[in-house]
């Protein structure tokens, strides 16, 4: 048996050290690692892709300027995302000021339950189909597209939690929202994704 060693990917801690020492290659690796996520995140705050790119460029400058002050208490990714959110908020026009927009989507249409709260129109069963690679790929594509149809606040929370895999505590920090809001936004956002998928499930 031939064992091939994969090229070692430096971890974030190592990249931070190298960046502090002025290593351009470390910066390039970081950009490759996080730029796509940063663009996705920025896009949820600003009106178009061009503004999102400006926000991300500006955020990288913020990363370079601030890297000496990064303390490593939160993951590097979360620290970078926080910079993106701050820059995007100061540019963005999509966001409502004042009370956070929880996005008034209901979890499941009440008409699908009888008066005692039991299903009368239960969900079509599809979850066991995700073991089929082709189905899973199509569903994943549809989920990523459907994310963009969510109200911005839900989109931000679902993206950070489920696409980026951050914990609820870190997400609250990055977005500066309360734990309670985070929970409602995540709950409604995921429920909405499920609704969208259910409506199109027959085509997958």
């Amino acid at each position: 048996m031939i064992v091939r060693t994969l090229p070692r990917m430096p971890d974030d801690g190592e990249l931070v050290e190298r960046l502090r020492a002025g290593d351009e290659q470390a910066f390039v690796v970081l950009v490759g690692r996080y730029q796509p996520s940063m663009l996705r995140l920025a896009r949820t705050f600003v009106p178009n892709a061009m503004v999102a790119e400006e926000v991300v460029q500006d955020s990288w400058l913020g990363v370079l300027r601030g890297i000496d002050r990064f303390e490593g208490r939160a993951p590097l990714k979360a620290w970078i995302f926080q910079i993106v959110v701050n820059r995007a908020r100061s540019t963005g026009v999509r966001e409502h000021r004042g009370a956070p927009d929880l996005g008034g989507t209901i979890t499941v249409d009440p008409a699908r339950f009888d008066s005692s709260g039991q299903w009368i129109a239960p969900p079509q069963h599809w979850s066991d189909r995700v073991v089929d690679r082709l189905f899973a790929e199509k569903a994943a594509d549809r989920i990523h597209a459907a994310l963009e149809e969510l109200p911005p606040a839900q989109q931000q929370v679902v993206t950070l939690r489920d696409v980026e895999g951050l914990t609820s505590t870190v997400v609250c920090d990055v977005l500066q929202i309360t734990e309670a809001n985070q929970r409602v936004l995540l709950h409604r956002g995921r429920a909405r994704l499920r609704q969208i998928l259910e409506a199109e499930f027959g085509k997958l």
Binding site: P36, S127, V130, A136, R190, R194
Partner: peptide, 16 residues
């Protein structure tokens, strides 16, 4: 099934 679907969505969303 509802719970399984939400779990599947979380898992699929994370496939970057």
């Amino acid at each position: 099934e509802y719970l399984a679907q939400i779990r599947a969505i979380v898992e699929l969303a994370g496939r970057a």
